[in-house]
Design a binder for these strands. Structure first.
Length: 231
DNA sequence: GACCAGGCACATC
DNA sequence: GATGTGCATGGT
């Protein structure tokens, strides 16, 4: 496959990839978290860290009854640090959690419900001003905790797209985000599932070379004809 | 015992 | 503006 140089075929590639993954794996119903708050905590803890480590830290917080804004907000820093230790970078991440909580309580009286009444552009801008929350973390919070229609770009997304010659290395976050959002319908559910399917595919297939051939994207994928029916 | 993982801020040039 | 570095655990 060559470089997709015109917009139409790019759009088709992105849609075809989605269709293939959805057909293969079905709906993922992401994010792995029981409440919006847990999603937010997970989004911060998973920065440059494997989910298995994050899950241990989340378990610790839940077991001790701290997976709620007010409880976590009142937790002393040393204790918080100790509980999230398995997720790595624990000193930094504890501060990042506190930075977010301070924001939540200062701006919205500790209420996620209120926070998520803010419009997408404004809330995104506010989140990005919090020290320790960058574009991926902000967008994960917006999409998976707040149900806003915004596409999340992460290391998995970049890896899969570059492996399939759809992007080249070095393209920045917002360029890639626009790539998806300009070529797909503005649809929270679609963005949610697409990113989740990318993560699943990358985790299952991208790491292990021998297994890569079994990846649905490496089969005679990207159908040429417009096979209309999905599912 | 290396190497890697769902980023981000900060220093330096 | 681009590039480099620190942050840390647990799985492979």
């Amino acid at each position: 496959m060559g470089k997709r140089s015109n917009k139409g075929s790019l759009r088709k590639s992105l849609l075809d990839i989605y269709k293939i993954l959805y057909r293969e794996f079905g709906p993922q119903h992401w994010w792995p978290g029981e409440t919006p708050f847990e999603v937010i905590v997970g989004a911060i803890l998973t920065q440059n860290t494997s989910w298995s480590n994050v899950a241990k830290a989340i378990d610790n917080l839940k077991k001790e009854g701290y997976m709620m804004p007010d409880a976590l907000h009142s937790l002393p820093l040393p204790r918080l640090t100790r509980l999230i230790r398995p997720s790595g970078y624990y000193n930094i991440k504890a501060k990042r959690l506190i930075e977010f909580l301070n924001f939540l309580f200062n701006e919205y009286n500790g209420s996620l419900e209120r926070m998520f009444k803010t419009n997408l552009a404004d809330l995104r801008e506010k989140l990005l001003k919090i020290k320790g929350i960058g574009p991926e973390t902000a967008d994960s919070i917006l999409l998976y905790a707040g149900n806003y229609p915004i596409f999340v770009i992460d290391a998995y997304t970049k890896r899969i797209l570059s492996r399939h010659n759809i992007i080249t290395d070095g393209m920045d976050y917002h360029f890639l985000q626009r790539l998806f959002m300009d070529n797909l319908a503005e649809d929270t559910e679609l963005y949610n599932e697409y990113h989740a399917l990318i993560v699943k595919t990358a985790k299952d297939f991208c790491k292990k070379k021998p297994i890569c051939e079994l990846c649905p994207l490496n089969n005679p994928y990207i159908p040429r004809t417009s096979e209309g029916k999905n599912t």
